[in-house]
């Protein structure tokens, strides 16, 4: 009789079924879509989205939004690439850590604005979105860091394999595991749910909204830091426009995963499946002869449709609940 888990599970199962149907349909048009190699490629392509979407998930869970993720990815990716370019001898692990640290700092600044400046998340991150993007240009002086300026070690960071899976996939798995643990088995993780569910009640039991905001924006920033390093090393290029518009995809993954856009409800497994769903679509577009220029439109459409369905389902559930009451 575990109703909430049941519902969550139901939603996740629906999503898994949807993902499977989609895959089968694409495979009908383009046989060979479902192959071990291609699937592994799709997961690889989606790993960055999964990590950043998990950060976005925590922010949305509190009823906020982080529009600056794309810009943080760009800045930390650029910074890490330039560090690698100027100090080729520096261990790659250290470069990665610097990237994460930079992301963390930028995210924490967002948190500071929201927690102590009382700036609504949408405005704070809309502002820092352009500030961090501008910083990227200032840092790079408008230049790119290209493949021949990066070290082999840097470019191999996401590509190296372990037990048959790429490091990038491992990073996503590790991040997912740690974050699922955080969201389910730590007090701070549950406090995020508390703030999203009922701020007044959270205050009564001593949950600090400021602390939660600092925490979630820092997490989101740090995950963007990882993503920035992985992005630039994987594509062997750090450009100023990296990850422009990526915030939409992260929100899309959350919404598809059943996270309530108004806060309070949702879980990470849903977000991961939501991200994979988007990954499959992005990979399937060229396969079924759609120009990649359609990607933007289709993503917008999917997000809107998903929110629409979520809302309708919520309304129906509420009605059922009311009808079930003693009257």
């Amino acid at each position: 009789m575990n109703t909430i888990k049941e519902l969550m599970k139901k939603r996740e199962i629906t999503l898994v079924l949807l993902v499977l149907t989609l895959t089968v349909l694409v495979n009908l048009r383009a046989p060979g879509f479902v192959s071990g190699e291609n699937i592994s490629r799709i997961i690889n392509d989606t790993s960055i989205l999964i990590m950043v979407a998990i950060g976005q998930f925590f922010v949305i869970l509190t009823g906020g939004i982080d529009l600056s993720v794309g810009s943080i990815i760009a800045f930390s990716g650029m910074a890490a690439s330039m560090l690698n370019q100027s100090n080729p001898a520096l261990p790659v692990g250290l470069v990665l850590m610097v990237g994460v640290l930079i992301g963390l700092v930028l995210g924490a600044f967002n948190g500071l604005l929201v927690a102590f400046g009382k700036v609504p998340p949408i405005i704070a991150t809309l502002g820092t979105m352009s500030i961090y993007r501008g910083f990227t240009f200032v840092l790079s002086k408008g230049q790119w860091v290209t493949a021949h300026e990066m070290t082999e070690g840097y470019m191999n960071l996401p590509k190296g394999t372990f037990l048959g899976l790429s490091n990038l996939i491992w990073a996503a798995v590790l991040v997912s595991a740690v974050m699922i643990f955080f969201s389910r088995y730590t007090r701070s993780g549950r406090e995020v749910y508390a703030i999203g569910g009922n701020k007044t009640a959270a205050h009564f039991v001593g949950v600090s909204e400021a602390k939660v905001n600092m925490l979630i924006f820092s997490i989101s920033g740090a995950l963007c830091g990882i993503a920035g390093v992985m992005w630039t090393s994987r594509y062997a290029a750090a450009v100023n426009e990296t990850a422009t518009g990526f915030e939409l995809q992260t929100v899309a993954a959350c919404v598809l995963g059943g996270v309530n856009i108004a806060g309070g409800a949702g879980a990470i497994p849903g977000v991961i499946i939501g991200a994979l769903f988007l990954g499959i679509i992005n990979n399937a577009l060229p396969v079924v002869n759609f120009s990649p220029f359609y990607q933007m439109f289709i993503q917008g459409l999917i997000v809107l449709a998903a929110m629409f369905i979520n809302t309708m389902m919520d309304n129906r559930k509420e009605k059922e609940l009311l009808n079930r009451r003693s009257l």
Binding site: I4, F181, R184, Y185, T186, R187, R190, Y193, A194, G197, N198, T200, A201, A202, F204, V205, G206, V207, G264, A265
Partner: peptide
Amino acid sequence: ASMFPELSVMENIYMGHHLKKKGAL
């Protein structure tokens, strides 16, 4: 109203003083 409607009865009771074992809830 000081409840968290989406969360379980048990969590509503323990929010703010969750019980822990070996660092995990």
